[in-house]
Design a protein around this nucleic acid. Sequence first.
DNA 1: CTGAAAGCGCTTACAG
DNA 2: CTGAAAGCGCTTACAG
Lengths: 349, 349
Amino acid sequence: MAANKDAAHQKPLNLVEIAKLAGSSKSAVSRVIQNQSGVAPEVRARIQHIIRVHHYRPSLFGRGLKGSRTGLIGVLGRFMESGFTAEVIRGIDDEVKKRGGHTLVSFAPGIEEYIAFWRSFVSGGQVDGVILIAPPVDLFNQSVGPSDRPTILCAAEPPKKATSWQRAGAVTVDNRSAMDRLVHHLVIKGYKRLAHLAGQPDIFDTQERVRCFEDAIRKHPGITGHVLQGAWTSELAREVVHEHLETHGTWPDAFLAFNDAIALGTLQTLQAMKIAVPDRIGVTGWDDIPFSDYAGLTTIHLPMHEMGIKTAEILYRLLEGKAGDLHAARRAKLEMPLKARRTTAREHS
Amino acid sequence: MAANKDAAHQKPLNLVEIAKLAGSSKSAVSRVIQNQSGVAPEVRARIQHIIRVHHYRPSLFGRGLKGSRTGLIGVLGRFMESGFTAEVIRGIDDEVKKRGGHTLVSFAPGIEEYIAFWRSFVSGGQVDGVILIAPPVDLFNQSVGPSDRPTILCAAEPPKKATSWQRAGAVTVDNRSAMDRLVHHLVIKGYKRLAHLAGQPDIFDTQERVRCFEDAIRKHPGITGHVLQGAWTSELAREVVHEHLETHGTWPDAFLAFNDAIALGTLQTLQAMKIAVPDRIGVTGWDDIPFSDYAGLTTIHLPMHEMGIKTAEILYRLLEGKAGDLHAARRAKLEMPLKARRTTAREHS
DNA sequence: CTGAAAGCGCTTACAG
DNA sequence: CTGAAAGCGCTTACAG
C-alpha cells in the first residue's frame, strides 16, 4: 500500500522487472514480446498477462541498441505547401500506429540536404525503414547499398537504369490513364489547343505527366498540345500565364495544370484579365484539394491518404520479408478518377 | 587501399572508433560532443576535426539508453485537415533540425487516444520533450507529474485551476485583439447583426474566440451578436448556415467563421441560395490559408509556421533550463493581422 | 585535464 | 523449453 505511489508518475518498468513479476527470465519475456517460439504456453500466458496489466512497452533505445528492429519509420518530405505531403504522412502514421511503431518525420527542401538525410536514415541504424515522399529525381543517381534499410518511394518510380534501386518499394499513381481521361474530357468539351502547366521540374510526377500529356495529344488528331515550364506554384502560374497570354497571338483554349494550386493561380489571372472560363478558356487541376470543389475546378482526384497507407503497408511487407523477390509485391499503382466541374463545363463548340 | 570499401555503405563509426582515431578516450569524445568543459583545447580540436571528417553522429540509442537527452521531440496532433497542423509541424521541424534533433510525430483524433499518447510520450523516456498541437481541453484534467518531460502547448493555454499545468510552456495567438479588429471592421462596414460560427467545441481557440466575440459585441452598442454551434467543418457549415437562414426570419448580416474552411462552406451556401456577398451578408474567416486570397475572403492571418518555430524555441529554452521560474519565459502570444478582402467589401450602408 | 569502469534496457547466441 | 551472459553505443560519476 504505502509503496504504491501515484501510478501516473512512476518510472516505467523494464524487462527484468516484468520477468521478476512473472517469475521468469528476461529471455523468456523478450521472446514473448517478439512473438517468438521457445516459451512454454503457461509461461507465455503469464508473461502476457503481466505485460498487459502494467502497460509495459519495451524501450525504443534498448531495442535500437541491439541493432534489431527499432519500431521507428523515417519519413522524409520536401514541402508541406500543397497538402499532399501532409495527407500522405497522416496515412503513413495511421498504418505505423497500427503496428505499434513511431513515425519520425523530417523535411529537406534542398536536394543535397534531402539526399544527406536519406543517407543518414538508411545507414544510420536509427530507423527500420524509410519512406521518401516525392523525392527529387536526382536521388536515383545515388546507389542503394545491400545493407541499407529498405526505402519505399511515395509518388516516384526509379528509372530502369538505376539498377540498385530496383529492389526499392514504390507507390505511384496511374498518371497515364488519368491524363488520357482528362485530355479526352477536354476534347469532348471542344477544347483544341491545350497548354500543360508543368510542375516542379525535379519531381517524378512532373516528368511523367509531361510525357503522358504529349502522348495523349498525339492520339487526338486536330488537337495541339504545348508544355509551359516555370509555373510550379500558384504565384509563378499567375505570372507565366499572364505573360504567355500577353505575348502570344494564338491562345490556348485550355490550361491543364500540374496541380490545383497552379490551376487556381491560373484562374485568378484569367479572372483579372476578364477572360471567360470555361467558355473562352478551360482550366483543369490535379489533386482535388478541398477547395477545388468550392472553386468548381475540374480536376483529377489523387488519393493522398490512401497513398500513405499503401506506402507503409509495402514497407512492412519488406520488413517482414514477405515480399520475397516478387517485384509486384513491392509496387503499387493507384487509380485517379476525374472530377468534372465548372471550369470545363462549356457547351460543345 | 584494399581495406577502403565503398564509403557510402560502411557501418557508421562509433564513439570508441572516433576516440581511437583521435588518439584519445571515449570520455573525451563524449565531452566534446556535448560541448562540456574538461578537455584540453588541442585534444578538443583534434576530436572535432575527426568528427567532422567522418560525419560522425552519435547514436540515438546509446544516448537514449543512458536516460539523458535523446534529441527526439515528440509532436502530437489531431488532424491534418485545415493545414494548420501541417504548417506548425514544418515550423517545429525547422527548429528541431537546427538543433540536430529529430521530430517524432503522431496523430490521435480521439481524446482518449490523445491523452494516452501524451502520457506515454511524457513518461516513457523516449523523447526529450513533447509538443501538443491544439490539444483537446479535457487534457487539462490530467495532472502533470514533476518528473514528466516538459510539455509545450501550441494553440492552447491551461486554465488557471489546472495548477500542475502552470509550468507547461504555451504558444498562443492573441485572439482578443484580432477579434476586436475583426468586429470593428465589420461594424465600420455597416454590418449590425453578427453571427459567429464556432469551431470544434473541445479546442481552446474555439472557446476563447467565442468569449472574445461576445465581449467585442458588448463594446458596440446597437450591434447584436449570436453564436452558432455545430458548424466546425466546411460541410457542416453548409448545412448549419442553410438551415439557419431557412428557419430564421431575421437574418444575420455577417457570418464570422472560426476558420477559413468554415467560411468557404458558408460562401458556398450563400452562393447556392443566391444571397449577395458582401452586400446582403458579409463573411469572414480565420487562418488566411492560401486559397482565401483567391476566394477574396476577409480573414485573420494566423502565422502557423512561426507558431511552430516559437513553440520549439520555448521547448528548448525549458530543456536547457534557461527559463528558470519565469512564467514569461515559457509563454508567447503572437499577433494576427486582419486581411480585409472582397467578402466584406461593401459600401457603408 | 584524463581515462577506466559501470550501467542504461534490450536481444541473441549459447549451454543446459 | 529455459536462463545466464555478452554486448550494442553511449554518459557519468569516479579516481588519478
